[in-house]
Design a protein around this nucleic acid. Structure first.
Length: 832
DNA sequence: CTCTCCCT
């Protein structure tokens, strides 16, 4: 069809059409760089409907539901049709496709599901990935699966990656055979001004001043990029009353209602101007028309998984160069614009080229379950733009196993398949399926309905966010029973709810239900000031001190945020937990262990039977039948807490540690034990345990001969090699056997220079692999020279040293050719 | 002083 008739005649992407067609005829992979406004997600897919090079259906992938819906509507209108005719739409909760549909606009998560249900993607000829540069987790996963389909089952399937920028994106590395086509965008020049904030100064006041300056000096509307809601509110307060009457201040962030967002996006009435204070939302998700000036603070909040604790933390970080460019571009969509950056040109060079892709920093629980549903237990089997980090994959798999969604071999279980089908977060999905089963078994009505309400609340976000109402989830349940919350909860209830009550059980059941989703976030009050808690996963967490939940001995924490550099995480959403109720339904969470330990106050040994949930001790029973094993365990426990320094180290034992470490590097024909501090601490029970027999008090640890115990760890053969090649002492030319000083990097010998006469070159150990660092001393034991090259020293610096020594110690012998002089410990008088 | 998305 003629594009002119669709009002798309002037789009830059058209110039590339002949080239795209040629390449589609010859290749099944293609990379297209096209900035905003080129027409890559509008004119291009429409034109493709008529191209003979494209057979079958076209899938256009969008990262966001809103964008997918708008594009589908726009394209259908261009064809004079409704969505669901030639142009279809498939997003969560909305499917409009028919037999007539040739082009389906879908979100990335939907493609993943399509591939899982039909791995051959029957009828699909081409997949267009839009906005690949944003590198969402869903993009990377959908792409990896699509390439798997293409490589293994469908070599006729065509895949095209479309990205606004290639800066820092490994697209060509992943698809080395794919031709790379580049299109111009359609935008106006944006002048960039660097206005750095003085070091050590808070940046918000500078930003407010800049906004006022730009309002005075430039025409049009301003878009200001800030990291979060808090900064936006504070900036709005500082600007209020400080700007002209015709200027509106419009906050814009995800948590605002649709109407409030619309106000920020709308074009102001004639004679009025606006300042939009926005988060990252305005960088890619929302377009605001009529912006001529961008003021960029240069920060964003970014979620990353903390591998140590398994919690996600939100950090304030600098944006990337690529992101800064996208933000600046927002000023040049309709006319030439201006951008002020609150950093310097030097700092600009220091910014990362692109954002770290989500797959490299996010919690991978969903990703690993999606892969298991597809049948992959080894993530490295797939081709990734950036591979998911092993450590995060292992953590995700461990939790999925704990939730019984995957088996020990990594395969998905029947329960896992049911949870996957729900499309909920795996933790919440587990809670939903178990709640349905419990309601059936216990005949207690409304458990499933309550679980559905809780899951919707946690997936869609806190309806009371930002208000000072404490962390209690119960207070939010009523606020989250309408609108989108209701829609989601109803969907799950329909999937699982046959024969279940439609009225939710009481709030007080929320605690144990949530423990099904968050077994690692059961919290126990730490006593003392009352707002500090310990989590079953081992980390600490705190409530606001005024929060009524502080009075609860146990909580389940549904949402918390670690703060970089500060100790405990802050609890945002939690429910009180009745431990007895939890034990009745989830006895498997509780484990019983015999624990022996030394009372830190009295030093006396005590043994108890502890009931634990992960790191929490929730019950204790004193035991009186102490055994030798108890003493041993208690002493080991004591050492683990105090560290290796609590052992009676001698110089000789420390030296042995260093000798064995050096032996492992230089004498590789033998195998050597790892006697490093970290290995010793980790393996305390194995190497030290046997020597603790008969000891009953910490004071008796002093009796241990650590040198001998460590030496016992070295096999006999290796011991004799150690003694010959890395000896404790070295015999110098005078015959003195001097102590060698071993350390992690090598070995040193301190010796009076006169004792080295007659030695022509540096002595070497470990079959010559290790030169001895010589610290040559004056007759008064003062250092003269440190060298690993004795021959060089004799031939070079010695003549100067000799002169100085002669002046200071005239009674000693200072020869011209020390390498060929007899060594001595004495003065000249003794020689004559 | 909680960023933003997504799920047959």
């Amino acid at each position: 069809m003629p594009l002119e008739s669709l009002g798309l005649s002037t789009l830059p992407i058209q110039d590339l059409f002949p080239s795209i067609r040629q390449n589609l005829a010859r290749h099944n992979q293609l990379i297209l760089r096209a900035p905003t406004g080129a027409g890559k997600s509008t004119a291009l897919p429409l034109a493709m409907l008529d191209w003979p090079e494209v057979e079958g259906k076209i899938l256009l992938l969008e990262p966001r539901r809103l964008a997918a819906r708008m594009i589908a509507r726009y394209l259908a209108r261009c064809l004079g049709e409704k969505v669901g005719q030639r142009v279809g739409l498939r997003v969560r909760g909305e499917t409009q496709v028919s037999a007539e549909t040739r082009l389906e606009v879908v979100t990335e998560g939907v493609l993943t599901r399509l591939i899982q249900s039909d791995p051959e993607l029957t009828g699909v000829g081409l997949i267009l990935f839009d906005e690949v540069h944003e590198r969402h987790l869903a993009t990377d996963l959908a792409l990896a699966l699509a390439l798997e389909v293409q490589g293994g089952l469908r070599d006729d399937l065509k895949v095209m990656l479309m990205s606004a920028t290639l800066q820092g994106q490994p697209l060509a590395q992943l698809l080395p055979e794919a031709p790379l086509l580049e299109s111009e965008g359609r935008s106006f020049p944006v002048s960039v001004e660097y206005a750095p904030v003085a070091t050590g100064q808070p940046w918000l006041p500078s930003l407010v001043a800049q906004v006022k300056r730009q309002l005075a000096s430039q025409d049009g509307n301003l878009l200001v990029f800030l990291p979060g809601m808090g900064e936006i509110r504070s900036a709005a307060e500082q600007l209020q009353g400080q700007v002209a009457d015709n200027v509106d201040i419009c906050p814009l962030y995800g948590q605002l209602s649709g109407a409030e967002q619309d106000r920020a996006v709308a074009v102001p009435e004639a004679g009025r101007r606006k300042v939009v204070l926005a988060t990252n939302l305005a960088e890619s998700s929302l377009t605001i028309d009529g912006i001529t000036v961008v003021v960029d603070a240069g920060y964003q909040r970014r979620a990353s998984l903390n591998l140590r604790t398994g919690q996600t933390r939100l950090e304030l970080v600098r944006i990337s160069q690529s992101s800064a460019e996208q933000r600046a571009g927002r000023a040049g969509r309709l006319a030439p614009g201006h951008c002020v950056r609150l950093w310097s040109e030097t700092q600009q060079q220091g910014l990362a080229e692109a954002e770290l892709p989500e797959i490299q920093r996010a919690d991978l629980l969903s990703l690993v379950l999606e892969l298991a549903a597809w049948g992959t237990t080894d993530v490295n089997e797939l081709a990734w733009l950036s591979p998911p980090p092993d450590s995060a994959v292992q953590r995700a798999r461990a939790l999925l196993q704990r939730l019984e969604l995957v088996a020990a071999d990594g395969r998905i279980t029947a329960l896992g398949q049911r949870v996957h089908r729900l499309g909920a977060d795996p933790r919440l999905g587990h809670m939903l399926v178990k709640a349905a089963a419990w309601e059936t078994d216990s005949k207690e009505p409304g458990l499933l309905r309550l679980a559905c309400d809780l899951a919707a609340l946690l997936e869609e976000g806190d309806p009371l966010r930002g208000r000072q109402v404490g962390a209690d989830l119960g207070r939010r349940l009523d606020a989250a029973r309408s609108g989108r919350y209701r829609q989601m909860a109803d969907k799950w209830w329909r999937q699982l709810g046959q024969g279940h009550a439609s009225k939710p059980a009481h709030h007080s059941e929320a605690g144990w239900l949530l423990a099904l989703a968050y077994p690692d976030r059961i919290a126990q009050g730490r006593g003392g000031s009352g707002h500090r808690f310990l989590l079953s996963g081992g980390a600490g967490a705190t409530l606001e001190e005024s929060d009524p939940l502080c009075a609860e001995p146990y909580l389940v924490v549904a949402s918390l945020n670690e703060r970089a550099g500060q100790g405990d995480a802050r609890i945002h959403l939690a429910a009180a937990l009745n431990l007895d109720a939890l034990k009745a339904v989830q006895p498997g969470l509780f484990e019983t262990v015999r624990h022996a330990g030394l009372d830190s106050a009295s030093g006396a040994l005590k043994a108890e039977r502890q009931t634990r949930i992960g790191a929490l001790v929730v019950g204790r029973e004193r035991l009186s039948d102490l055994t030798e094993a108890d003493y041993r365990l208690a002493l080991l426990d004591h050492l683990r807490r105090k560290g290796l320094e609590a052992l009676p180290w001698s110089d000789r034992a420390r030296t042995l540690q260093a000798r064995v470490a050096l032996a492992a590097q230089t004498l590789t024909t033998e195998s050597w034990p790892d006697l490093s501090d970290s290995a010793l601490l980790a393996g305390l029970e194995q190497w030290l345990g046997p020597y603790l027999s008969g000891l009953t008090k910490t004071g008796q640890l002093k009796q241990l001969d650590l040198y001998q115990i460590l030496l016992d760890q070295v096999p006999w053969q290796a011991q004799s090699l150690l003694n010959s090649e890395l000896p404790e002492r070295l015999t110098v030319p005078t015959g003195s056997a001097l102590a060698l000083h071993y350390h992690s990097g090598g070995v040193k010998l301190a010796v009076r220079v006169q004792e080295m006469y007659g030695q022509s070159d540096t002595p070497r150990l470990a079959r010559g692999a290790l030169p001895v660092t010589l610290e040559l001393l004056s007759p008064a034991q003062r250092p003269i020279q440190i060298t690993q090259d004795l021959a060089g020293f004799w031939a070079g610096a010695w003549s100067e040293v000799k002169k100085e020594m002669k002046g200071r110690y005239p009674k000693h012998l200072w020869p011209d050719d020390p390498a060929n002089t007899a060594p001595t410990r004495k003065t000249k008088r003794h020689l004559t």
